[in-house]
Design a protein around this nucleic acid. Structure first.
Lengths: 112, 112
DNA sequence: CGAAGGCATCGACAACCGTCGATGTCTGCC
DNA sequence: GGCAGACATCGACGGTTGTCGATGCCTTCG
């Protein structure tokens, strides 16, 4: 800890993020911080029905089905995606609340 | 690749993120996807002068000075922070362009 | 009931990440 | 010049991550 004798800069005023808040939001960003997962979310978001099945997502990448399933699980575990099984296929959809939590980080409102 | 014989869902219409765009933005998110770095950015952003010196940032965490320096280097390498040395002290400031690039991901405009 | 297909899980591997102590570099002061 | 302080860099370590092949589960169809 530096003594207050000499001040090198303003004492970090304002209201910074709390440690707990950082610990909460960081996993969301970590889940999104991957090119494949970013594209997965983007693909689902740009889908007309707002959801996408694994089979189509699988075709969009040059990766193994196991790898895509793993990335989807990461996004689902982070709370970013909802998972619904209908018959043989599994559909993933965006969870808007989680995305807005991240969007709030940058002082902006949710898109839609 | 699945045959188009049976459609399991809408064909992923809309305009999804390109692979190149994902590869560009993912490192920014990866740099932010850490509780310590998130708080570092928040501390700098909430500073009155818009910048902060390492000595004060160091005092805000229970981490070694080497670790804080490492995190600042990661943020600087990602283009999120500007680095300026003034005398004995080093000041880090936000680079708004990088933050807006991330904010645009969520379809929102830059805060300020 | 048996076969086929969609998806998840498992085990393994290399690569990367966060943290630390120790050391180096540079600046300003006595 | 020599010392002290601020910050960066180095080397090392355990833990995590992305990817794969192989396998298992479950649903549907014949």
């Amino acid at each position: 800890m530096s003594e207050p004798g000499l001040a090198c800069c303003t004492p970090l005023s304002g209201t910074a993020m709390s440690a707990e808040q950082a610990e909460q939001v960081a996993p969301l960003l970590k889940a999104l911080a991957d090119p494949v997962r970013l594209r997965l979310v983007s693909l689902i978001a740009s889908s007309a029905s707002g959801e996408a099945c694994v089979c189509d997502l699988n075709d969009a990448f040059d990766l193994t089905q196991a790898t895509i399933s793993h990335h989807l699980k990461v996004l689902h575990s982070a709370g970013l995606l909802d998972r619904e099984k209908r018959g043989v296929w599994v559909y993933y959809a965006l969870r808007p609340a989680a995305l807005s939590a991240v969007a709030n980080l940058f002082g902006t409102a949710v898109p839609a």
